[in-house]
Design a protein around this nucleic acid. Structure first.
Length: 137
RNA sequence: ACAAACGUUCUAUUGCACCGAAUUUAUUUCGGUGAGGAAAGUCCGGACAGCGAAGAGUAGCAUGCUUCUUAACGAGAAGAGCUGUUAGUUUAUAACAGCAUAGCUAGUGCAACAGAAAAUAACUUCUCCAACUGUAUUGGAGUAAAGGUGAAAAGGUAGGGUUAGAGCCUACCAGUUUCGGAAGUGAUUUCGAAAGCUGUGCAAACCUUAUGUGCUGCAAGAUUAUGUAAACCAAGGCUUGAGGGUUACUCGCCCAAUCUUGGAGGGUAAAUCGCUAGAUGCUAAUUGUGAAAUUAGCACCAGAUAAAUAAUAGAUUAAAACAGAAUCCGGCUUACUAAGUUUGUUUAU
RNA sequence: GCACUCGUAGUUCAACUGGAUAGAAUAUCGGAUUUCGGCUCCGAUGGUUGAGGGUUCGAAUCCUUCCGAGUGCG
């Protein structure tokens, strides 16, 4: 499997975005805040991601672009563990990553924290999956 | 010394957007292209597109020495005038920097404190006349020569003149306006003559005047499929003028309510076009003081839509900034890099 | 993409279409009062009026260029 990051892996539908922010559950893993929910989205990939960096904290477009690129690079290299869990479910996962720190962090730190938060996300849906199986039994 | 231009390069791994080709019908492979001098601020000007049933005027807004450049401009070039600094000094003048530089002699308004008075100058002084009376006071008139102020005090000096004074008159000096000659496309400069003309400052105060300007912005606007309102259209009927629509207002223009029947269709979400070959770029020659223009040759150089152009590691290095296209151009403004290279100007040797 | 508004002591606000020393409350500090503290009273400190440039005799105020904060329209 290749560590791609296509247009179809990004959350771009307005409706789905509104649904996510209205009904999604969230947790924060500094310097990120993750909002996530299951939804029916037309894509080949098991998940769609939305990366945002607030304009209030980073005035310059160059800084915002750089952080977004670093996050997306970290995501595409470390997404497979999450995919393996989501693939078992019928629905697709949509989630947003919001950068909440006011400073620019190094790439090593961002990559570590992305791995951590993806693991947390994966764990939550793994538990649900197993619980469903238990109730069936 | 100052100003301008140039805005690191390469390797490996993993990736992104668009275009083309192949394979083949939803993917894969290969190749090509992929941010800036400011892409920024949005301070101006245009192109392009739509809006008004056709149009006119007003308001509003902007600009304001001259000539030129330009598609256009509030931008730029070359000049004129004014102001300031420096050098020089009896002056003259030179260099540099800046200037929203039409009109307070169209009208209105404002000018704190101080000062007699801040724009119709009479408070004190000075002079004359009258009263009372006895050497002072009161009243009337004249007078801008003197009065410590102030940012600014009503041309300056000298003489004449007068009751006292005054451009009241004369001479010289300074300025203003008008007329004429010369130079210049012109702003203007310069020479001469005339007018006692001497009229404070502020228009980035209201305003007047000249010129320009319709309004809204690519979320403009066009098309497609899904599908339907209380909004729209047509016909009939009622009504004959209440009202409604039309860019900020006025005129003008358009419609004719409520009811019945029929037709067509919006919001919302999405896709395609608009969308990148152009007042284009580079080079050379010619013209022009210059902004710039003309001609010739060559080139095709981002087009995304939560938004691609990158992430990591390493090398090169003294160190590498400001910063990321969103319809497109021309300017202005602001931000900014170590060493260096190139170009131009000036000064010194 | 357009169209606007506001920046004044540490904080919250004033300052009349330009006039002098930019004022008030509160906070801070000092003193008085109290056995001590609070309340109260008195006094002091604190401002390059967001930054630069211009107009004017004179600018917080007028004009202009930036910086920052915020609002509206589609």
């Amino acid at each position: 499997m290749q560590s791609t990051f296509n247009k179809t892996e990004k959350l771009s539908s307005k409706k789905a975005t509104e649904f996510l922010f209205a009904n999604g559950k969230s947790f924060s893993e500094f310097p990120f805040r993750v909002i996530h929910i299951l939804n029916d989205v037309e894509t080949k990939f098991p998940a769609q991601i939305l990366i945002t960096v607030p304009k209030k904290k980073f005035k310059k477009a160059v800084d915002r672009n750089r952080i977004k690129r670093q996050i997306s690079a970290a995501y595409r290299l470390n997404k497979f563990e999450l995919y393996s869990y989501i693939k078992k479910l019928d629905k697709k996962l949509t989630f947003a990553i919001i950068y909440t720190s006011t400073k620019e962090e190094s790439y090593a730190q961002i990559s570590d924290k992305i791995i951590l938060s993806l693991q947390r996300l994966a764990k939550m849906y793994k538990q649900k999956d197993e619980l469903d199986i238990d109730t069936d039994n």
